[in-house]
Write a protein that binds this DNA or RNA. Structure first.
Lengths: 124, 124
DNA sequence: ATTCTGTGACATATTTAGTATAACAGATGC
DNA sequence: GCATCTGTTATACTAAATATGTCACAGAAT
C-alpha cells in the first residue's frame, strides 16, 4: 500500500501515518494477519525517522489495530470492542456536529455525508 | 455560560475554548449578536492568560463564528458557508469513519450516533 | 481623564515533534 | 557460530507549539 505523507500538513507525521494505516485496514488494503513493513524499512521508504514510525505503531497497537511481535514485526490485528469504539466515535464527532449545527448543516446532510464515506471506503 | 477547561486534557486550552464556545452557539446559549466576555475578563474568570483567550477568539473569527469589534469586543456572528462547512465536516469525519469501519461499526450505528448528538444539542 | 477594548512586541518556560546515533535482546537463516 | 533482521531503549539535540508574563499602544466609551 502506498502511504502518503504531507510534510506541509498541520497534522503531525505520526498522526498521518496512523490515519493512513487505519484507512488501509478500512479499505481492505490491509487484511487481518498481514505483516506491516518494519519500522526501519517504512521509515526509509517514506524518508522519515525510525522513531516516528515506531511512535505510530505504538499508538496503533494501543488503540487495538495491530499487534507487535518481536519476531515478525507489526501485523494487522484489530481488537473489536464495539462499545468503547462507539464511545470514542461519539466523543470525536461531538465537536464536528456542534460546528455543523452552527453552520446550518442539518442531520440529513451529515447522514448523507456518512453514507458517502462508507460507500467510498467499502467500494460503491 | 459556564466554560469548563480540563487542564489535564491532551487538547490545548485554546482548542478546548474554541470548542466550548462553538458548543454554546450550537445549543443557543450564545445567540447571534451576543457579546462575549473580553479577552482579559474571560482569561481572569477561567484562570488563564489573556493571549490564550485571544488566540481562541482569533481562530473563531477566522472560522467564521464571531466578529471582533475594537469597540465592543467579540460578538457572535456566524458566517454561513454551507459548502465549505460540509467539505470541512467531511474531512474531519473521514478519519472517524475509517476507524469505525475497522471496529465493526456499521453506518446505522453512526447514523444513530449523529441523531443522538443532534437531539442532545438541539434539545430532545 | 479614566477606563475599557483588541492588538502588538518582547521575553520566557514547558511540552511536543522529529531527527540522529548507538546499543541491546531475541529470533531467523545460513 | 555468525550475520542479519526484528522491536525496544537510552541519550542527545533541534525546532515548533503551547502557555504565560509584562509592557505598551491606539481607539472608543463613560
Amino acid at each position: 500500500m502506498i502511504i502518503e505523507i504531507d510534510f506541509n500538513s498541520e497534522k503531525a507525521i505520526y498522526v498521518q501515518l496512523c490515519n493512513q494505516i487505519i484507512l488501509g485496514i478500512a479499505t481492505s488494503q490491509y487484511t487481518e494477519g498481514q505483516q506491516l513493513p518494519s519500522v526501519r524499512q517504512l521509515a526509509d521508504t517514506i524518508g522519515i525517522n525510525m522513531h516516528t514510525v515506531n511512535k505510530a505503531y505504538s499508538i496503533l497497537q494501543q488503540e487495538g489495530f495491530i499487534k507487535i511481535d518481536r519476531r515478525r514485526g507489526a501485523i494487522i490485528a484489530v481488537d473489536i470492542n464495539k462499545l468503547q469504539a462507539l464511545q470514542e466515535a461519539q466523543d470525536d464527532m461531538a465537536a464536528i456536529v456542534a460546528r455543523a449545527i452552527c453552520k446550518g448543516i442539518d442531520r440529513d446532510d451529515i447522514h448523507e455525508l456518512v453514507d458517502k464515506l462508507y460507500d467510498h471506503y467499502l467500494g460503491q
